[in-house]
Design a protein around this nucleic acid. Structure first.
Length: 909
DNA sequence: CAGTGAGCGAGCTTCCGCTTGACTT
């Protein structure tokens, strides 16, 4: 039986659409992108690996030709699609109608290679039977210009990320990353922290009082409305009283502020001078209040409201929404559109009528213009699914899903309700102080006469002090000239506040406003900058780590344009022109990579790194030069350097606690830390024999224990120290263990020549030492356990240079077809490798000792041979390389562990 | 940031955007 094959992006969508198209159609999904540039070396095809641009998988010398691969986990899915295509007499590429969707359609076409059947591009913006059938009846051609625009975006991001990240590995720390989106997100957080650090608090005072609208009692019966109301001092002798907005970040009044700045004394004097004052109403100003409903949710607004009202992180919100979507409760949750389909508008309106009555229903449906500048409108707004909405109670949902559904449902219904209307009133009260000053108090109120949509939905605020939209303040019904008295009056002091830190939700909003990132990535952007250690969360606030300051400084100084807040917006403009066929992708990419008259190219920027001083980059002054304190970002985190007791510059050091936000590192705090440079010492107790305090610390060479010498100890006296064994940890080390470590080196006994043999731990692990003759030990336990006999035995063997502890091969594979030498698999410092005696090649991610064959080993060795004999570290400065190596090791172990699990996962599937 | 003595197989980290399971506890 032949059929028409329709391919959409999402499996849930495929299920729905299958029902609408009926017999003769088979609807499958691509599950997102089906091909991409190879992610890493293991996924890079051998034929491009050795090219100079192999690491990028983009032939930068020939039109920026990208090399795509089908990721391992997508291969079986592609096979399935190919199988379905065999029996198809038509192929409909029905991926989303945006840039990425067009590219997916093209990749599908290029990968599936349908032969002899018509291929059609089908696009729809809402999932209703009518819309789908309409779309199927009117397909279009593939828009190759749009695909070009997507490829340009993809290639630019790869060049940016894969060229700039290695700069950070070399200059800051291994494993770091830079990218068009994450680097700007990080910069936003860092810049905000810098604003907070530079912020100078200003204090100001004003007068607040409660006033009585009917000082002579009611004109008979009950009062019309309220009687008591609050008011604040507005002017003194006609000049406005300064409030928070009149002060700049420098703590001073803004230049143009024509205000009177009250301090505590003056404010209190004024209160006293107003003790007997009576007031009269100087003016009553009423204005109509009107507020329109908020647009239906798109991804970012949903994330913000879920954060404000339900306390959900962006990623939790998305995964809860994903479940709602898959089970048919809501429409697609990754969208930048606020548009509702006609049937959704109908459903919302009938729900308004049903729940709130006709008076809440506007005459005409409401539509919302999209505020997102680069919106691609491939989907609808996020709303309850279906042609009629289920109320939350009807869904049977529970927990987070229920709460999120309810939020979406209310917002959608409210978006089709009438405006809220009312009145806002400002009343000014005047009076004279006994000191002769004329003062005016101001009170404002808001009365909502018709709640409209506010009856259904009120948006949350990020600032807890801000008034919500439905908040009402009632004032008495006063006329100009009416007498008013003060029931109470007091001076109140205020301080200006630095700009608030970003939260996940506000950072995402900021990124969206700047056209950076896409609905499908907002949540993961937060994940990326958290994972890299650029920021951490303190409650809901995002706090930048010091390493982010180093990274952003480097990027701003050397890749200024790339971390410009407008970079992405500029890129989008160019992509739009490429999509319209007005610009050529190769010349745009070429300008970006190789530069032009106006712009320095990326390639030259990353090659010109000589002048970047890594040390300088990681050093930040604390306070002024006179304070003589600086913060440095080291391998083990940030630490302070300050003047020594004798005044020597930067002689004293102290760790900065990991969770101390940068803006709290004041000069006073820095001095406090430096005064007690114990840092993260762990007190283990007092040594019973020496009476000295024994502590554990994290040092340059890892965790170690040491003893604290008394203050009066001679300067030449040095405390004993000892590195922790690999099997020990700072969390679990005991005093007993520490005392044993401090005893080292342990004397094992005397050798045959009478010279003492000792056992100890060193840079390369445990070893024996006899004079200048040293021998490695295989385990740390031997340091305490080895007997003299065993030690003598080791010394009776000739010293093995290099492969002292060479283990026997793990596996023998046979002879190499090229060299004729036997190939064996061995375990080494860097993992398992194959060797023919001359050349060694490390096993790649997908190889294993159990599965490796002679052919594969020969292949690896051939690759290795092609690179020539091992070279000694040549170009880079020796000190640099040495320093970097340790860092690299530290990060790789963590990553390697993570990799292993993914590999296992991939294999089983 | 503590200070102790060799001699040796490198290879990998990383981007942004589309999408879901699959994995483990």
């Amino acid at each position: 039986m032949s059929h028409k094959l329709v391919i959409v992006e999402s499996p849930a969508k495929a299920r729905t659409i299958g029902g609408y198209l009926g017999d003769g159609f088979v609807v499958e999904s691509s599950i997102g992108h089906i091909r991409d540039l190879p992610n890493n070396a293991a996924d890079t095809p051998a034929k491009i690996k050795d090219k100079p641009w192999g690491r990028l998988a983009i032939d930068v010398d020939n039109g920026f030709q990208p090399y795509y691969v089908v990721p391992r986990d997508k291969k079986s899915h592609i096979a399935k699609l190919k199988q379905l295509l065999k029996d198809a007499d038509e192929l409909y590429l029905a991926t989303d109608g945006d840039r990425e969707g067009e590219a997916i359609a093209w990749h599908l076409l290029d990968e599936l290679k349908p032969k002899g059947i018509p291929v059609k591009r089908m696009v729809f913006h809402e999932i209703t039977k009518a819309a789908i059938q309409e779309a199927a009846a009117h397909p279009r051609e593939l828009d190759t210009d749009l695909v070009e625009a997507q490829e340009t975006r993809r290639i630019l991001d790869r060049l940016y990320g894969y060229e700039v990240s290695p700069v950070l590995w070399r200059k800051v720390m291994s494993g770091l990353s830079a990218g068009r989106v994450q680097s700007v997100a990080t910069r936003l957080v860092v810049d905000r922290e810098k604003e907070r650090m530079a912020f100078k608090v200003a204090s100001y005072w004003d007068l607040e009082g409660t006033f009585d609208g009917y000082p002579g009692g009611y004109p008979g019966g009950a009062p019309p409305g309220v009687r008591m109301f609050p008011a604040k001092l507005h002017t003194v002798d006609g000049t406005r009283v300064a409030s928070g907005t009149n002060f700049g970040a420098d703590g001073l009044l803004k230049a143009k502020a024509d205000v009177v700045h009250l301090d505590q004394r003056r404010a209190q004097a004024l209160v006293a001078a107003l003790a007997d004052t009576t007031y009269d109403v100087r003016s009553v100003e009423a204005k109509p209040y009107r507020r329109s409903p908020y647009p239906p949710f798109r991804t970012t607004t949903l994330q913000q409201e879920a954060s404000r009202k339900l306390g959900m992180s962006a990623s939790v919100t998305m995964s809860v929404a994903q479940r709602l979507y898959e089970n048919g409760f809501i429409t697609y949750m990754r969208t930048d559109s606020t548009t509702l389909s006609d049937s959704a508008i109908g459903a919302a309106r009938s729900q308004v009528q049903e729940l709130y009555g006709a008076e809440y229903l506007p005459d005409a449906p409401r539509t919302y213009a999209n505020k997102v500048k680069n919106a691609q409108e491939a989907h609808e707004a996020i709303r309850p699914a279906g042609d009629s909405f289920r109320t939350p109670a009807q869904t049977g949902l529970k927990g987070d899903q229920f709460r999120l559904y309810e939020l979406i449902w209310m917002r959608t219904v409210a978006s089709q309700m009438k405006d809220a209307v009312g009145q806002s009133v400002t009343i000014r009260l005047g009076g004279a102080a006994s000191t002769g000053e004329d003062v005016v108090f101001s009170a404002s109120g808001r009365v909502i006469t018709f709640h409209g949509f506010l009856k259904a939905y009120v948006e949350g605020t990020d600032d807890s002090a801000a008034a919500k939209d439905d908040q009402e303040t009632r004032l008495p019904n006063l006329q100009e000239g009416d007498p008013v008295s003060a029931a109470s009056l007091s001076a109140s002091g205020h301080e200006t506040k630095p700009p608030a830190r970003y939260t996940e939700a506000t950072l995402i909003k900021e990124l969206e406003d700047r056209e950076i990132g896409r609905p499908s990535t907002y949540a993961s952007i937060i994940g990326t900058i958290l994972n890299r250690g650029y920021v951490y969360k303190k409650g809901t606030a995002l706090v930048p780590a010091w390493i982010a300051f180093s990274v952003i400084r480097l990027l701003q100084e050397h890749f200024t344009r790339l971390v410009d807040y407008d970079f992405t917006a500029g890129m989008e403009d160019i992509l739009d022109e490429i999509a319209k066929g007005e610009k050529d992708r190769v010349s745009e990419l070429s300008e970006f990579y190789y530069g032009s008259d106006k712009l320095a190219g990326l390639k030259r920027l990353v090659e010109d790194l000589g002048e970047i001083d890594a040390k300088e980059l990681a050093t930040f002054p604390v306070g002024t030069e006179d304070d003589g304190i600086q913060l440095r970002v080291g391998k083990y985190g940030p630490y302070l350097e300050g003047p020594g007791d004798d005044g020597t510059a930067f002689a004293k050091r102290a760790n900065v606690p990991d969770d101390l936000p940068p803006d709290e590192l004041t000069v006073a705090k820095a001095k406090e830390l430096l005064a007690n440079p114990a840092g993260e010492e762990i007190d283990l107790g007092v040594h019973p024999e020496t009476g000295l305090q024994v502590v554990a610390k994290n040092g340059r060479f890892g965790p170690y224990v040491t003893e604290v010498l008394p203050e009066d100890a001679p300067k030449s006296a040095k405390p004993r120290t000892g590195s922790l064994f690999k099997s020990m940890s700072l969390d679990t080390i005991t005093l007993d263990e520490a005392m044993k470590l401090l005893e080292l080196p342990r004397v094992v006994g005397a050798g045959e020549d009478g010279e003492e043999i000792t056992a100890q731990n060193g840079r390369y692990g445990p070893y024996l030492k006899k004079g200048t003759d040293s021998r490695s030990l295989t385990s740390e336990d031997q340091i305490f356990g080895i007997t003299l006999d065993e030690a003598l035995k080791i010394y009776s063997q000739p010293k093995q240079r290099g492969r002292a502890a060479a283990a026997p091969p793990l596996k023998e594979l046979g002879n190499d077809p090229v060299s004729g030498q036997p190939i064996v698999v061995k375990a080494g410092r860097f993992g398992e490798y194959v060797t023919d005696g001359e050349y060694n090649a490390t096993l790649r991610k997908d190889d294993s000792v159990e599965e490796i064959t002679l052919e594969r080993a020969a292949e690896l060795l051939a690759e290795r041979r092609a690179k020539g004999p091992a070279k000694k570290a040549a170009k880079r400065g020796a000190k640099k390389t040495a320093a970097k190596k340790t860092t690299a090791k530290k990060t790789t172990t963590k990553k390697a562990a993570a990799k292993k699990t993914t590999k296992k996962a991939a294999k089983k599937s």
